[in-house]
Amino acid sequence: MPDRLSFYLKKNSIIHALNPFTKLTLVFAIVTYGLIGAGFWTATILVCLALLPLAFTARLLKEYLGVAVKLILPTAGFMFVMQSIFIPGGTTEIFRLGSISIELETVQRSYLIASRIFLFISAFALLLLTTHPSELMTNLTQRGLPPQFAYVIISTLQIIPQMQAKSLTIIAAQRSRGLDTESSFIKRIGLLVPLVGPLVFGSLVEVEERAIAIEARGFTSTHKKTYLHEVPDTNLDRAIRTILIALIIVAVVWRVWPS
């Protein structure tokens, strides 16, 4: 279970200081290039030449690599290995063990998929490492996202640790009363109800009071919202975004244009 529910790490860097929307555009550009770039090494090159330098500039190279190794590599790596082994097709056999054969073409295709997934996910991870969720949501709200979305995202991130704490308490309580997660299948199904019941009903009944509480504080107000924190949007931000959007358009047009 994670200790903290946002990746965000405060650092004094030029990447942290960028407007969240600029960083989001950057991620979008990287994803677009990764998707439409036809080259075998496109995703790998983007990771090495875009994400790693960005993480370095953000003074988060170590943390970025940590996230990549701990979270993304297992997923992407597992897929790569499994697909290389089990997906049939391809003619150039490079390895054989009994009935299982590995072909060069399958390995290449698997690498392409895995490296793309690695690219997309780590691009988002970098965004989340350098941007506080509250800052991101505030900025998106200022740009026209309905404010309710910001409420949903932030309060979800805050409710989950409490719910997890609650479910750990319930599991501990049931263990002290003899819960055995190793017992028979039917018994374990029977255990689900006393575990899930208190957790779910408690939090569902709270919904009404919490709705009243935020309505009492103008949640449904039709006034134009204001914001406690200013999220700076500099000329540099606007310049970077313009360039990125131009690059995206060029890439898409070049790709879709019938050649």
Binding site: Y151, T156, I159, I160, M163, L195, A211, T220
Partner: peptide, 22 residues
């Protein structure tokens, strides 16, 4: 209704907590 907006985060937390319990 505001009930929807308040229920959604709770529902997400239910998804994730029960998923872990299972």
């Amino acid at each position: 209704s505001t009930m929807t907006w308040v229920l959604i985060p709770v529902a997400i937390a239910i998804n994730i907590s029960i998923g872990q319990l299972v």
